[in-house]
Amino acid sequence: MAASGGRLLYRCPQSKAVDAVRWLRPISAFDRFIAAAVHDTDTDTDTCSSAVEIHSVNLSFNPENPDHSRPLLHLRSSWPSPSRISSLRTSETRQKHLDGGRECVSVGEDGRVNLVSIAEMRLDHRLVHDSQGLVSYTAARWGSQAEFATGGFGFGLQWWDQRKPGGLVSQFKGWLYLEHAIDYPPLMSHKEGYPNNKVGGSSGTVFAWDLRRQQEPILLSGVGPTGTGQSTSESEVWEVQYDIHTQSSSTSAASSTKILPVMMCSEDGILAVIEQGEAPIELLAEDCAINSFDIDPQNPSDVVCCLEWETIGILLRQRRAISAYS
C-alpha cells in the first residue's frame, strides 16, 4: 500500500496474470465487486487455465487513519474460459441476460465486424462487415443505440451506423498507429480514439475526434507529425476512459467545446489524467506495465487497475466533498 497526494494505492497480488479488470454494478450499497480476466500459467496445459473471476472488494476505508483500513479482495466466483481473454466489458443493465437488450460488437484481426446477441441460451451473431483480412480491427465501442466505432491497424477510426446500408459511415483521419481502446464521453457530443505508434516512432499518443469535424484529430498526448505536443508516456497506451472525477479546468464544460479529461494507462507503468492544453496529472508510475483499468461509475474517485506483475491495484482518490455522497 502506498499513499501520495491524497491518493491511496492498494496492491493485491494474484499469483496469476491479470489481463483485464472491470468494476461490476453493485447489488447493494455496501457491496462492491470487480471482475478480472485471469490466466494461470502454473496449471497443466490441458486443463482450463483462463477464467473470469468475480471478487468482492472490502474497502473499510477510513480517511482518518488510512493505514489501518485493510482492503481485501475476496474471490467469490470463477468462470473458466476456453481461451485467454483479450477484452472484458460489463453490462450496464442489471438483467442476468442481455435478452432484448443491447448487442455486443465483436471485431477481429480477421477483419470481421459482428453483432452478437444472447437469445435463449445461445449466441446469435450477425455479420455487419467482412473485409476479408484486408483490414484488421483491434478495438470497438458503442456510441449510441445504433452507432459504434472501430479501430485497428491504420490511419484512422471507422464510424458505423447500423441503420445505413453497408454500415460504414465514415473514416476519421489520424496518423499511423494501432488502436487499443476507444471511449465515449458521457455527453454524446464527442468521441475519442486512442492510438499510438506514429510513423517512425512509438510514442504513446492519445487523440480525440469531434464528430462534427472528423478529419481533424485533436492531439491530447504524444507527439504529432509536426513534432509538437506533450507526451505523458512514450510507450503503448493500453486503455483510455473519460474521467468524470477530475474536474475540468474549464468550469463551464457543458457549453465549451473543450474535451473532457481522459485517463490513460501505458506499457511503461503510467496511469495519468490528460486534458487538452493542460499538463498531465500522473496518478501512478509503476515499475511494470499497467495493462487495463476501470473507473468505478458509481464512485468515480475509485479506480481499479491490473499490473503486469500479477497484481490488481485499487486506487482511491480523494473524494470531492459533496459529489461523492450526492
Binding site: 477483419g111 473485409s131 476479408q132 484486408l134 483490414v135 491497424f153 491504420g154 490511419f155 484512422g156 473514416q171 496518423w175 499511423l176 510513423v199
Partner: peptide, 16 residues
C-alpha cells in the same frame, strides 16, 4: 470499395 480500408492503412506516404 473493398480496397479502401487497405489503402487507408497504407497511409498518405506512398514511399513507405
Amino acid at each position: 470499395k473493398r480496397w479502401e480500408g487497405l489503402i487507408e492503412l497504407l497511409g498518405p506516404e506512398v514511399e513507405s
